[in-house]
Amino acid sequence: MARAAGSEGARAHRAIAFDLAVLLGLVALFVANLCLGSVETTSAEVARILAGGPGDASTAAQVIWQIRLPRAIEAVLLGGGLSLSGFLLQTFFANPIADPFVLGISSGAKLVVAVVMIVVLGAGQVMSPAASVASAFLGSLITMGFVLLISRRVRIQSMLIVAGVMVGYICSAVTNFLIAFADDQAIVNLDNWSRGSFSGATWADVALVAACVLAMGAAVFALSKPLGAYQLGEPYAQSVGVDVRRLRMLIVLVSSLLSACVAAFAGPVSFVGIAAPHLARRGVGSSRPLFVTPACFLTGAAFCCGCDLIARTLFSPVELSVSAVTAVFGAPVVIALMLRGRAGR
């Protein structure tokens, strides 16, 4: 028992050390996002501007308060939320490559957003952030429902990923069909949305994102104990008093709302939901949700903050799609971790 307690304490210390290291990296990336850009400022100037409040009328202050700061905060929140969504789906499907993008959830969100933008609103109408969140959430939930229906008939877990990919292709095909009959402005709006970007973030957007992501993040942390039991199998979870059916429903709702929030405000962002949970688990040296949940959020936040910095500054003034940058860095990470895990076995 003493050995087990010592092992648990060692894992806790490792998790705390990893979280602190990632937090320091996140702070450095956040400051870099505020300093670098077409209007370059030093960290001392940024500190002075932030201390002076948003009333400063200088160009540098307006750029930081109205453009860079809300964008950086949104990237942190949405990156952390997407990572948590991927962690929940990987736990739910017991599959290391499950995430909202791979399972077609992002494509489903895009389809419903396209329906509302092109069919319901029509030409000349602007889609509000609240309508984007509601549409993306509905699309995420419908797509997740299809995948769950298929999961009842398919016993091989790897086939669920194939089913999710197929559902994603169907949603993309229907979306392309709608685009063929849309007006030019709707096509431009949908194309800009679907590229994946944190640009254009406002303080109103940040307030909505913070309310959603922080509430769902707290829910994930509160579910740490039943999630830990669920990881050991449904029979074990039931034997220790976990309502498995209710837990599965909560996992679906929380992961769908998180992925919907990301899709609504940043568009489809790939590979963060796969790569960040893998990095977090590897960093803390454990799969226990109590340790992995905060590490997941911080890792996803740092990953998206760094990728957004690259997307914004690498070929400035041309801005890359953040989804393209996350794929460039996320895909090799997943491949390397899987090959390392296979070699270890």
Rank of each mutant, 00 (worst) to 15 (best):
C304D: 04
K225Y: 12
P268S: 07
A264R: 08
S259L: 07
V220Y: 00
Q238A: 13
A302I: 01
C304S: 12
N192C: 09
A266C: 09
G200M: 07
L309N: 07
C212D: 09
V213K: 01
V240C: 02
I187V: 15
V292G: 04
F265W: 09
V272F: 04
A263E: 06
T299Y: 00
D243I: 00
T299D: 04
T299K: 07
V242E: 00
S255I: 12
A280G: 05
P277Y: 03
V206F: 11
F221V: 15
G300S: 10
C296G: 14
A266H: 11
Y230C: 09
L223P: 11
S255P: 13
L190C: 04
V284K: 04
P235E: 12
A280S: 08
I187S: 11
P235S: 06
F221P: 10
V242H: 00
L258R: 06
A301R: 05
G200S: 03
A207S: 14
L190I: 10
L247S: 03
P235T: 02
G228Q: 10
V220M: 07
C304I: 14
C212K: 05
T202F: 13
R195L: 15
A260R: 12
L250F: 04
R195C: 04
F303Y: 05
V244I: 04
S270T: 14
L214N: 06
A219D: 04
R288P: 10
V240Q: 00
V292Y: 02
L208P: 03
I274Q: 06
S286L: 07
V252Q: 11
C307G: 01
L214W: 03
I310N: 04
S224K: 15
M249F: 11
F221M: 15
G233K: 09
G300P: 03
I310S: 07
G306W: 02
A302R: 00
A237T: 03
R282K: 13
C305R: 07
